[in-house]
Amino acid sequence: MDGIIFLQWAFDAVLGLGLLWLAWRALNSSDLFKAIVLFIAFGLLMALAWVRLNASDVALAEAAIGAGLTGALLLAALARLETMTDQNVSGVSAHPAHPPSPTPAGSRFSRGLLILLLSASTAGMGYAVWSLPSYSTGLSMDVAAHLDSSGVSNPVTAVLLNFRSYDTLLEMIVLLLAVLGVWSLDGLPPQPEKPPATVLETLSRFLTPVFILVAAYLLWVGADAPGGAFQAGSVLGATGVLLLLSGWRPRARLMQWPLRLALTTGAGAFILLGLLTLLLEKQLLAYPVAQAGRMILLLESLATVSIAATLAILFLSVSSGHKMKTGKEEKE
């Protein structure tokens, strides 16, 4: 038994150190492409850490959004940055103008001061964490006590879609704001010509239905087990990214109001349901207990559509205008 505990400890310690090491490497690698790949690896290791911490819901979200979609966004942005800067300032991004090089003598003092400040704040924050009581249940008792009347049996879904559903409503607005912000920079993304068919196209044709099924499963199972709108939405969004990578482009007609509807349907459903409950129950987003399960499933389904559309359109906007460089290795 002691052996197992020791092994667990060792595993956690290695994982923790691995996270720090990967983060350090990702942030200080001299090559940006390498930095992003290391960052994606870091995200996957984070997912493993979430599993170790009994947070499977978070692990799913991290793997799909934190590592997967963020990674795709970063790579797409880097590819576009290189096509841009190659024309102007050659090699700015491939060999960054400011690598972590030895500092000139003038700024050595400020560098030292920075290290000192950061060390002091690390010690302070570390001590603060250390000083916290070693046993605490937080709000888990309150959640457990009300789980029966929440309409679902997965406590994380209960928190996200019922107890703290108002946060989730605002979060849907944050997603919408990201799209509006990106659009206000670029206008609606232009329609790039279709790149030639690749292996990816065949692959994505095969994978699309599988991913849609996975998303539907995650959405359905989220009521009782790890999963839910965010995980399903990000898997569906990733499907969209894969299709976009393989050269598929939505028809121009789809990019108008059907897209706008898809982007807003999650937030819109929250608002409409919120106003309805305000009218009937006198409380914003207070579902009648008997209907709670159905209402949560409805909200989650529409939120899934919005999240997927948002993530896919963010990727399209960041990567559009230029042909994707998928074969980055040839540059190395």
């Binding site: 709000l139 309150d142 107890f163 559903s165 108002y166 409380q283 914003l284 579902y287």
Partner: peptide
Amino acid sequence: RHAVGGWGAPLGI
């Protein structure tokens, strides 16, 4: 004061 979702703090918002 309005308890969103009818739960009330600290469980709700």
